[in-house]
Simulated scan of single mutants.
Amino acid sequence: MNAAARFEGPGVSPVFRARKLSKTYRMGEVEVHALRDVDLDIIEGEFVVLLGPSGSGKSTLLNILGGLDSPTSGDAQWRDHQLVGAGDAELTRYRREHVGFVFQFYNLIPSLTVLENVQLVTEIADRPLDPLEVLKLVGLERRIDHFPSQLSGGEQQRVAVARAIVKSPDVLLCDEPTGALDYETGKVVLAAIARANEQLGTTTIVITHNAAIAGMADRVLRLGGGRIVGETRNPRRLSAEEVTW
């Protein structure tokens, strides 16, 4: 079965569902419309790329789906969790129990080793994975006793990926995960994210301005001016090794 067919047809229901999502920021006398009436469905296990230039609404949409921000209007839910109108405690529990985040900057604790940085998350997780197995998944099993300062940027980002997935999240949200990396190390990080999606079944959303990364996705949503302006389903997902830019 090809990538598109896996997420189409009867019985396939979305885990994320958003309707008429809008977000307006006020900057002095100016209103900035970050999102405008966005409708979105994401299926369990999908690898989705949100593609668009800076200011297109990608990060705002990701932050709402991750329970880090709330829309000005509209509705969003994850399974039976209502994300719009939920209180701080409820959103904190949603993020802790269901969501893994990978950001452009790694935010590792410098005084902890690679293994300790990943183990720290397992203390607040309900169903954590084995930290050593997760570090093996991202190719860092030989670096577990090193500190962040002893790692390259790509290795630090792979620790951040491991830290995000060790709690066995239902969804992995990645905000420009290769933005601070060079070409070769960026591809290694993308391969680690793809393995988490393929081997663990984690629903994965990656936002990027790099159109080449879109080939790795099951589905690509293009954003512009706060709206979804296009959608593409890839008949075959490219591996990180096949992606060039």
Rank of each mutant, 00 (worst) to 15 (best):
T92I: 02
I64D: 07
S73E: 15
S70P: 02
N107H: 15
G85K: 02
L68C: 08
D80Q: 15
A89I: 02
A86H: 06
G66K: 05
W78I: 04
Q82D: 14
L91S: 02
D88M: 01
F103T: 01
D69M: 07
H98D: 13
T92E: 13
V99T: 11
H81V: 15
W78L: 13
V84A: 02
S73T: 14
L68F: 15
E97R: 14
G74M: 12
F103E: 07
F103H: 03
R95K: 07
W78G: 02
Q82V: 15
A89D: 15
V84Q: 06
T72K: 04
F105A: 10
D88C: 00
N107K: 13
L68W: 11
R96I: 04
D80M: 06
Q104S: 11
A86Y: 02
N63E: 01
L62A: 01
G100L: 05
L62I: 10
Y94L: 07
L65D: 07
T92D: 15
D88R: 11
N107P: 05
D75P: 03
N107E: 12
S73F: 00
G100I: 08
R93I: 03
Y106W: 03
L108D: 11
Y106C: 04
E97M: 05
A76L: 12
I64N: 08
Q82F: 00
N63S: 15
P71C: 08
L62Y: 05
E97Y: 01
G87A: 01
G66N: 04
F103V: 02
I64T: 08
A89F: 02
G100A: 01
F105D: 09
F105H: 13
L83A: 10
H98M: 14
G87E: 00
N63W: 03
L91H: 05
Q104D: 13
T92W: 00
L108E: 06
D80K: 14
I64G: 09
F101A: 11
H98C: 06
R95D: 02
V84E: 00
A86M: 10
V84D: 01
G74R: 11
H81G: 00
S70M: 10
G100P: 08
R96L: 06
L83P: 05
F101L: 05
R93Y: 04
Q104K: 05
D88T: 12
L91C: 03
S70A: 15
A76M: 07
G87I: 01
L65R: 08
